[in-house]
Simulated assay, not measured.
Amino acid sequence: MPITITNVPESNMIVIAVLIAVLFLTFRKSKHTEIFPISVTQELKGLGILTVVFAHFAYMLVTNAEFLFPLSIIAGVGVDLFLFMSGYGLSVGMLKRPMPVLDFYKRRLIKIFIPFWIALIFIFAADAIFLQINYPVPYMIQSFLGWFPTAIGFGDVNSPFWYITWMIMFYALYPIVFSTKRPWLSALILAVIATLLGVYNPLDMGDNWLHRLHTLAFPLGIVAAWLLMETKDKENKLVTTLKNFRNNASNSMIHYVIIVVMLAIVVYMSLHTTANHWPKLTALLGKGYFVDQFTSLVIMFAFIVIFSLKKFDNKFLSIYGLYSFEVYLIHWPLIGRYDIFFSYMPAWAAVLAWLVAFILISIVLQKMVTPVSAWIDRLVQK
Rank of each mutant, 00 (worst) to 15 (best):
S318L: 13
A353P: 04
K287N: 11
I304E: 00
D292M: 10
A349C: 10
N276K: 12
V298K: 03
F341G: 09
V356S: 13
Y323K: 08
I340R: 04
N276P: 06
L297C: 15
K310D: 14
D313T: 13
A302V: 09
T273C: 05
L281I: 15
F290P: 00
K287V: 11
V267E: 01
Y268M: 14
L285T: 04
I306L: 07
P333Y: 06
Y268I: 14
I306Q: 04
K287I: 07
A275E: 02
V298C: 12
G286D: 05
Q293K: 02
P346Y: 02
G336N: 02
F316P: 04
Y289S: 08
A283Q: 11
A347M: 07
Y268D: 13
F307I: 11
W332Y: 14
R337Q: 12
A302T: 06
D292Q: 09
I335C: 08
K280D: 14
I335P: 00
D339I: 06
S324K: 03
F316H: 07
I335F: 06
V327Y: 00
Y328R: 03
V327W: 00
F342P: 00
K311Y: 04
D313K: 05
W348S: 13
N314A: 12
V305W: 00
L322P: 01
F290S: 05
E326F: 07
L281Q: 09
A350F: 09
W348L: 08
S270T: 14
Y320F: 15
V298M: 12
F294G: 05
Y320P: 01
I306G: 06
T273I: 06
G286I: 04
L297P: 11
L271K: 05
Y328Q: 05
F342R: 02
F307N: 00
I306D: 10
I265R: 02
G321N: 04
F301W: 14
M345F: 11
W354L: 08
V298E: 06
S270A: 15
P333T: 13
V305M: 00
Y289Q: 06
Y323Q: 09
Y289T: 11
F294I: 05
S318Y: 09
M300N: 07
K280Y: 13
V266Y: 03
V327D: 00
W354K: 05
V305D: 00
F290W: 05
V351K: 01
L317K: 01
I304Q: 00
F290L: 11
I304F: 03
A283V: 06
L309M: 05
G286V: 04
H277I: 07
I304T: 05
L284G: 08
L297D: 15
F301E: 10
S270G: 15
L309Q: 02
V356E: 05
Y328S: 10
G286N: 04
N276W: 12
A264E: 06
I330E: 02
S296C: 11
G321L: 01
R337L: 10
F341E: 06
W332L: 13
L352E: 09
A275G: 02
S318P: 10
